[in-house]
């Protein structure tokens, strides 16, 4: 069950994970984010840039408050330092890369073994019901409509939804290519990355 095609992206993601978190430079993180975005586009999902931009700006801005490294210029009496800029960018890009990576990892709708796995699939099928019934939660009477929804759902007995797994050869090829590209980016930017953390 663990080697089912649904779990291929999960396994590939675990292979790619160290290349993102282990001494990754700003350059390699940027390249990795682009690779993960391409993966998402291949899956036919939209890319939303605004949350990424907000994340980069807010994390970088807060890190700039703690000066570290060469002063590049001074902005309203705040010294903008090269090291702080790099640290902020690296942290923000790491977070973004990890979020995309984990989306990729669950894209195959992985199956988890054991009792927790059974409970998770039950949880997801109830979750789908909540999503379908969300309109029945009326703003004025949230408590009573929520209560009614819970009662109604308990009397239905859902079974785990079986989502069709994608063609496994294609999934395997894409996963392998992604892993190669992500590690390639890590290697390529490893030496050229300028010093100092």
């Amino acid at each position: 069950m663990l080697i089912s095609s649904r779990n291929i992206p999960m396994a590939a993601g675990l292979v790619m994970l160290p290349a993102v978190v282990f001494h990754s430079s700003v350059g390699s993180l940027a390249a990795q984010v682009i690779i993960f975005m391409i993966l998402q586009i291949i899956r036919g999902e939209r890319i939303r840039m605004l949350p990424n931009i907000i994340m980069i700006v807010s994390v970088t801005a807060l890190n700039l408050l703690q000066a570290h490294g060469r002063v590049l210029f001074t902005l309203w009496s705040l010294p903008i330092t090269q090291g702080a800029l790099e640290i902020g960018l690296r942290k923000a890009l790491t977070l973004i890369a990890l979020i995309y990576l984990s989306r990729f990892m669950v894209s195959g709708k992985p199956r988890f073994p054991g009792r927790i796995g059974m409970l998770l699939s039950m949880q997801f099928s109830y979750y789908n019901q909540f999503l379908q019934h969300r309109l029945s939660l009326k703003p004025g009477q949230i408590v009573s409509s929520l209560d009614a929804l819970l009662v109604r759902m308990e009397t239905d007995s859902p079974d785990a939804v079986e989502a069709a797994a994608g063609p496994w050869k294609l999934t395997a090829v894409i996963s392998a290519a992604a892993a190669a590209a992500v590690w390639g980016a890590w290697l390529y930017f490893k030496e050229t990355a300028g010093c100092c953390g």
């Binding site: 703690q66 000066a67 570290h68 490294g69 060469r70 002063v71 010294p79 330092t81 090291g83 953390g197």
Partner: peptide
């Protein structure tokens, strides 16, 4: 000019 926190081990 370079600026570092005194607490940054570097």
């Amino acid at each position: 000019q370079w600026i570092y926190s005194i607490e940054s081990d570097t």
